[in-house]
Design a protein around this nucleic acid. Sequence first.
DNA 1: CTGCCAATTCAAGCGAGCTTGAGGTCAAGG
DNA 2: CCTTGACCTCAAGCTCGCTTGAATTGGCAG
Lengths: 133, 133
Amino acid sequence: MKLLDIGEIAERSGVAPSALRYYEEIGLITSAGRKGLRRQFGPETLLQLSLITLGKAAGFSLQEIAGMFGKDGQPDLPRDQLHARADALEAQIRELTVLKDALRHVADCPAPSHLECPKFQKLLRAGSITAEV
Amino acid sequence: MKLLDIGEIAERSGVAPSALRYYEEIGLITSAGRKGLRRQFGPETLLQLSLITLGKAAGFSLQEIAGMFGKDGQPDLPRDQLHARADALEAQIRELTVLKDALRHVADCPAPSHLECPKFQKLLRAGSITAEV
DNA sequence: CTGCCAATTCAAGCGAGCTTGAGGTCAAGG
DNA sequence: CCTTGACCTCAAGCTCGCTTGAATTGGCAG
């Protein structure tokens, strides 16, 4: 099995070496061992980093991401909790869709004040996050 | 026009008063004026806060959110930039979908190591975030 | 008019997620 | 064998997004 050192991982994943060391420190990833002082990572680390990057973009904390996929990329969680996570993601996807539609609306609607535009308000309310206005 | 003071806004939006003051400080929202010392907010602030909350959940920084919708809830950006933002959101939605599917996969796939499961790898690669493994 | 209580300011502090810098080690190429 | 440079550790520092606390003000009910 071919091992990669931190610079290689950094370059191919786009994650800075300092960040990779930090991730290891908090137990989010694990190095396969050391060559001298140098950490050696297995290639699966690249896949894990894809997941981590993905999760971060989604607004999850590193702790939450660690909870979804253990250090080794295996889930620590029981199935139903994973599905619950997936459900939460679906909800978030719906919210993002609302935001996206809101943006498209403001880009296109000629109304003077979007916040007063009924269509716009309806969009937001569809997000179900809206406070009781 | 009915104005609300900060406590009312906080309660109805779920955003803490200290956070609201902070948002005003950084120019993300604007108060309609003061009654004595007390900030008074127009009801449209509640809608703005919905957008802000939405944007935060999506992983945007307050600066980025401010860029999408100006202080007054009106966009500062030209149409095409707004559409570009929306496009970026769509991309993010696709990524989230990948993450969601990945979670469902790990919940259901009986394979010993998901990172080695071809289906799983295909899922990740579909996210197009994956480094060249 | 009094007193309460919600609101104010301002400075300091906090947790997350890294980055930076100083000083040290060591694997590999010439 | 020697140099180079990528790696190491550890502590300190930084940005973001707030929260907390102390000291003060002032709107409003009684």
